[in-house]
Simulated scan of single mutants.
Amino acid sequence: MGFELSPDEVEAFTTELARLREEHRDLDSAIDALERVGAVNQIQVQRLKKRKLYLKDRIAQIEDALTPDIIA
């Protein structure tokens, strides 16, 4: 049994999804920039990568919530 999201929930998820995707791209750029500099703080890069992974997981959760279940 599935459930349907209300229009307000869909809008909230869509807005959050856009924000998370933007933050994910920004982190990607920041990590690339730090690694190009050379003398990089590995702990800082590791923290950024962990945040990026969290964002990727959250994006997947929201996309799953927005995609209706199809029973084959």
Rank of each mutant, 00 (worst) to 15 (best):
A39N: 15
I62C: 02
A65K: 11
R21L: 03
A39M: 15
Q46V: 08
A30P: 09
I62G: 02
N41P: 14
A18N: 04
E16A: 09
Q46C: 08
K49P: 12
Y54A: 09
D8P: 05
Q46G: 13
L34N: 08
G2P: 15
R36G: 07
K56R: 07
A39Q: 15
A39G: 15
L66Q: 01
V45S: 05
A30E: 14
D8F: 06
L66W: 00
R51C: 00
T67W: 06
G38Q: 11
I31L: 05
E9F: 02
L17S: 03
D8S: 12
L55P: 01
L48A: 11
E11K: 04
R51F: 01
A30D: 11
A33G: 09
N41K: 11
K52A: 01
Q44H: 14
D69N: 13
D28P: 12
F3E: 12
D26H: 06
Y54G: 12
A72M: 13
T14N: 01
R36W: 06
K56T: 02
K52Q: 00
V37Q: 14
A30V: 09
L5T: 06
D28R: 08
Q44N: 14
E11P: 00
H24T: 03
E23K: 10
F13N: 00
L55S: 00
L66V: 02
L53T: 05
L17D: 01
N41L: 09
V37A: 12
I59D: 02
D57A: 10
A12M: 07
V10S: 04
S29Y: 07
M1Q: 02
E23L: 09
I71P: 07
I31D: 05
Q61S: 12
V10L: 06
G2T: 15
K49V: 12
T14E: 01
D69Q: 11
Q61V: 10
R25M: 05
E16L: 09
L20H: 03
K52G: 01
I70C: 12
R19D: 08
T15L: 08
P68Y: 14
S29L: 05
A30C: 07
I59K: 02
D69L: 10
A39S: 15
Q42V: 13
I31R: 03
D64P: 04
N41T: 08
R36K: 07
I31T: 06
Q44D: 15
R25E: 05
T15N: 10
R25C: 00
V37P: 12
E35C: 07
L53Q: 05
G2W: 13
V40N: 13
V45E: 04
G38Y: 11
E4H: 09
R51W: 00
I62Y: 03
V40K: 15
Q42G: 14
Q42W: 14
K52N: 01
Q42N: 14
K52H: 00
G2R: 13
G38N: 15
R19V: 05
Y54M: 10
R19C: 06
F3V: 06
E23P: 11
I70Q: 14
D32C: 10
D64A: 14
Y54I: 10
A12W: 03
D8E: 15
L17I: 03
L17A: 02
R36L: 08
T67L: 08
P7R: 02
A18K: 04
D69I: 12
R21F: 02
K49W: 09
D69R: 11
L48N: 08
E22M: 06
L48V: 07
E22W: 07
Q61I: 09
